[in-house]
Amino acid sequence: MRPSIDLRGRGHAAYWAFLIHRLSGVALALFLPLHFWALGQAIQGPQALGGFLDWASQPLVKAAETGLVLLLALHLTGGLRVLALEAGAAGAMARATILAGVAVGLTIGLMFLLGVFA
């Protein structure tokens, strides 16, 4: 049998951009409810909020938050890239959107990381 999934024809930049967009979307769909639930704990009263803030200042939680922001940023720039394609970006322009999207997404994630650990 030939393998039904063969990655050799998919190793191009536009496919990676698609994958980043799709996987960040799926990850957001999984993690955002969790995030909102955690935020929901904060409005249960001052005591709960205090406990929550203590919890949220742990490095691991901060790292997870940074991951969430990074996912959001990459998903946002990926979406803008698809819009650019649908508006008619092609050739060098289409390739530039891939690089720009990933660069801007990573920059936003990095800025957030520096912010939370400052």
């Binding site: 191009h12 394609l85 092609a90 289409a94």
Partner: peptide, 10 residues
């Protein structure tokens, strides 16, 4: 179309 551009690539 999901704009993967595999068509365009190949």
């Amino acid at each position: 179309c999901h704009s993967h551009q595999s068509c365009t690539e190949h």
